[in-house]
Amino acid sequence: MRQLIRNAAKTAALGVAAVLTLSSPQVLAEGWPEDNIRLVVPYSAGGTTDLLSRKVADLLQKELDTVIVENRPGAGSTVATAQLARGGRGSDHTLVMASPGHTIGAAIYPNLRYNPIEDFRFIRNVINIPNVMVVPGNSPYNTVAEFVEAAKQEELSFSSPGIGSSIHMSGELFKNLTGAKMVHVPFRGSGEALPALLSGDVDVAFENMPTVYPHIQSGKLKALAVTTATPSEFLPGVPTIQEAGAEYGLGDYETSAWFGLIAHKSFPEEGVTKLQEALDKIMAGEDFNNFLPQFGAEAGKVVGDDFRNFVAEELTKWAEVAEKANLKR
């Protein structure tokens, strides 16, 4: 026994030494950042947001200081943002990767203890992923118009990876604007939702581009339209919902999965500037631009106050949809 403990202590001491040497600081620059940067992902490890965040962190790390990615999932991303809004220790080095969950969460969850716009600094929109309106390959509908006409006669179903996801809300918005009869069938994650769509158990989905892109190529799914305001370079010939459904009240329809960095409202000005500069550099770089197409993604466009206004508009949009779909708790 004594021998065992002595051995354990020896190993432990070696371990401490090894770990301490590993964790020595990498870059020491002037001014901000004075500490490691924390990038909080408001979802579990392994999701799209997590994946994108880790890539961005990886690139940011080369420009600034060590970036530590931290997953803090819960209540549709509002747990992480609520914590950011509270501020306190370390909040001058903490970022959150915000996504549609930031606005949809604010529209759905009751008594949030923060204001989703006023309490934050909006640094930059980094990545946008369009959603695609897809139907099964053997579906009788070939255009948005045909689909809407059919859905006015008979109730059709749309799938989503879960209630309150941007994919679900895209469907609800579509339903609101066209007045079509559509019932939401929630799954848990796109991996579960996809087979039901491929086999024709559900009639339509407004899925993220990277999830459905290979199936559109193989002909198992048909893309009727993209949800963004401009057509996607990945799906040439596929119209936008705005164009294809203008006569059905879809003239203003626009949704996408956007990802951007936000921080606490008292985040140092110097940090904002440095981050924006670093992001500009990264987003012009080869690495980032090689990465984007793998996700059918586009580089984010809006910076600073424009980003803030964009999020505010999103918030209004989703609050209205949530109200009509009876999702506000």
Binding site: A12, G15, V16, V19, L20, L22, S23
Partner: peptide
């Protein structure tokens, strides 16, 4: 000490 350093750094 060892375990938390392991969690955090490794």
């Amino acid at each position: 000490v060892v375990v938390s350093l392991l969690f955090v750094h490794l």
